[in-house]
Write a protein that binds this DNA or RNA. Sequence first.
DNA 1: AGATGACCGAAAGCGTTTCGTGGTCAATCG
DNA 2: CGATTGACCACGAAACGCTTTCGGTCATCT
Lengths: 189, 189
Amino acid sequence: MDRRQEILEAAEKSFSLFGYKATTMDQVAKIANVGKGTIYTFFANKEELFNAIVLKMINEMRAEADAVSVEGAPFEQNAHARLMQMLKFRGTHQLYAKLIDEEKELRTPAVGEVLQAIEKEIIFYVKEKIEKGIAKGEVFPCDTELVAYILFKAYLALVSDWGKTHDEELSEERIAALLKGTIFKSLLI
Amino acid sequence: MDRRQEILEAAEKSFSLFGYKATTMDQVAKIANVGKGTIYTFFANKEELFNAIVLKMINEMRAEADAVSVEGAPFEQNAHARLMQMLKFRGTHQLYAKLIDEEKELRTPAVGEVLQAIEKEIIFYVKEKIEKGIAKGEVFPCDTELVAYILFKAYLALVSDWGKTHDEELSEERIAALLKGTIFKSLLI
DNA sequence: AGATGACCGAAAGCGTTTCGTGGTCAATCG
DNA sequence: CGATTGACCACGAAACGCTTTCGGTCATCT
């Protein structure tokens, strides 16, 4: 069996279940049925192993976001579906959710960095889609970096922040209606 | 001399300088030239004293936001000026800035509650202005609560969050241009 | 040569003690 | 006699030192 793969799977399991800090290298070695030293022949240290897992997760997320978009559908519909999917992923995916929790509770630096990197990746993804929309003539030319940023932050606020200060979450319909009437309305040609 | 007033001034000084947790009631009493017990004849406890100070600050902020708006100017201009002013206040005012820092570093519960209350107050203020805009026929009727929320969150993200992940702050012009081209464009009649 | 796990030092955890602080109230004062 | 005070108390948080844990290494053994 591929030892590197075994280690990756073991690490993913452990990070997802216990988070970054509470995962020990001994733990990972045990789950992977591998001597601890072996891990270090494939990964320089704990953080690099962690980064490898997170990279894998980012690709999953990207794939899921692509999966909910419909070829040929209008920009607004696909953009909304993609962002909602990524934010659903954010709150649902075991590892991602665990990391958000760990960042809030423990402030583990490695986790903070990784979360920031994921966010950057999402914004980059959104930016790409906006540029594609502009190229297709569906979207007004604009400051794509900033528009991607504000779109992500808006969705994040509505999907995730709102619930923290109000007793019930916003429905997807209300979110869709608001953005249709504000940001998207002025973005679309 | 008005003892209650003396205490308020002393408390404001101390909270602004040291934050909530690091301000001791002995400290406040000393600055106010008052016995510690006297404080408790005016305020039930430390938290109520704190709330009184914060309430005063909220009114200051409101006043400053009102001050930058121009009677008769278009909705967008006033809304932008008001929100920018409040966010400038947020980052500049000694007490407010100190509290944000304390919340991040110490997680003092009393501070978290107060910050949330201030945010709620700002959003309420924005909501009022939007409703006035609608009444005047300047703004499309809309879900005012949500629009106020998203406007505040958008400005907050651009003014405050952006700098945390990029090496330089956004210029006010770039912020103004972005919002003019997105949210405001679809809000205005 | 590749894998292993005993080993190392740094750092986190933990149980105990000390200290600082919010809040009270009997004594004091005007 | 009512307003003011600061010594006092209870208790939660810091300080301390001792123990354990854990990331990373490397001599040893396939």
